[in-house]
Computed example of a mutant assay.
Amino acid sequence: MARRRQIFEGRAKILFEGPEPGTLVQYFKDEVASVSLTSKNVISGKGVLNNRISEYLMLRLGEIGVPTHFVRRLNMREQLVREVEMIPLEVVVRNAAAGDFASRFRLAEGAPLPRSIVEFYFSSDELARPLVSEEHITAFGWAAPQDIDEIMALSLRINDFLSGLFLGIGMRLMDVKVEFGRLWEDEQMRIVLADEICPDSCRLWDLRANQPLEPDASEGTSAGHLADAYQEVARRLGILPESGPADLKGPDTVQ
Rank of each mutant, 00 (worst) to 15 (best):
R3N: 11
R3I: 12
R4Q: 11
Q6W: 05
R11S: 13
I14H: 00
L15S: 06
L15K: 13
E17F: 01
P19I: 06
Y27S: 05
K29C: 04
V32A: 15
V35Y: 12
T38E: 15
V42R: 13
L49M: 07
R52P: 06
S54T: 12
M58Y: 14
L59E: 15
E63C: 04
G65A: 01
R72F: 09
L74W: 05
L80Y: 00
R82C: 03
E85Q: 15
M86Q: 05
I87Q: 00
V93E: 02
A102G: 06
P114A: 04
E119T: 06
F120L: 07
S124L: 04
S124R: 07
P130F: 02
P130G: 01
S133R: 01
E134F: 02
F140W: 14
L154Y: 03
R157G: 08
D160R: 08
S163V: 07
L167H: 14
G170F: 04
M171I: 10
R172P: 04
R172G: 04
L183P: 01
E187A: 10
Q188L: 09
V192R: 06
L193P: 06
P199N: 10
P199Q: 11
P199Y: 12
C202I: 12
C202P: 03
R208L: 15
N210S: 11
L213P: 06
G220P: 12
G224C: 07
G224T: 14
H225C: 14
H225A: 14
Y230Q: 06
E232G: 04
A234C: 02
E242D: 12
V254D: 07
